[in-house]
Design a protein around this nucleic acid. Structure first.
Lengths: 131, 131
DNA sequence: GCATATGTACTAAGTTTTTAGATGATAAAT
DNA sequence: ATTTATCATCTAAAAACTTAGTACATATGC
């Protein structure tokens, strides 16, 4: 059954599976599930259903190798990260990505190490754009 | 009807309404809906239902003023922003907020102004924690 | 006073999400 | 060769999401 309005974003369970898939590159349901932060004990068929839905939604493609379906991401993790950041920026930070970073930096849970990491990223960015 | 597992995060429609509420501070269903980016034409009763659910979930509280219920956020936008960033960092950036910034800096147009702004936020942050 | 507007509360329908059982095909093990 | 494991596919069911109608109460306009 096709979906009325296929969504641009993953549900939390779908994201779990996509993370498993991105981790292995390509793989069968079992391989994907083996590469997930498995705090949840899920039946194999549940995983198969999720992967089938992800294919319906266009996030993955499948190819039959011997008996098993081997799934491959259609969307890279990098692309999905960008899409997610833009969505969050739009829906929660008035469309300003800078506001998102500002909020992140403002967070108490940020260690000095993380701050230095961000600072050097900003240095690189300015070097690249200003010569 | 109470929910089995009350979630920490808003659905997209709920977020629309919370943005409306955060924008007005406190307000009735009608006031909230008036302050939403109203690309969708929704019935008043739909809004009332969403607000009731948001109260069930603990995101807002209500207080009867005359006839109408005046809703107030339980969670500030700032708090929810932090929660969302942490969630996204955890689920999509291996728990490293720096990786999120890296991804953002990588393909978004951050002006020098924004970068300087962020840099001074970082300075403030380190001053506060170290000096 | 009566019609109109505005409000809550209840109810419900359609869809999506999440999980997993049942069935049948095919490969592997003994 | 028959049992056992693995796989896809079909089906289903509970929960959540989204929208809105209906009913009823209470103000407001005339």
């Amino acid at each position: 059954m096709a979906r009325k309005h296929d969504p641009d974003f993953l549900t939390s369970v779908e994201l779990e599976f996509m993370n498993g898939l991105w981790a292995v590159g390509s793989g069968t349901v079992r391989e994907i599930m083996a590469n997930m932060d498995a705090e949840v004990d899920r039946a194999y068929t549940s995983g198969a259903t999720v992967m089938r839905i992800l294919e319906q939604k266009g996030f993955v493609a499948s190819d039959k190798k011997d008996r098993a379906l081997v799934y491959t991401p259609v969307l890279s993790k990098n692309e999905y990260q960008g899409r997610s950041i833009r969505q969050m920026s739009k829906s929660l930070f008035d469309g300003a990505p800078g506001a998102l970073v500002a909020r992140l930096v403002d967070d108490e849970m940020l260690t000095d190490e993380m701050i230095e990491q961000i600072r050097s990223l900003l240095d690189d960015k300015q070097e690249k754009s200003n010569g």
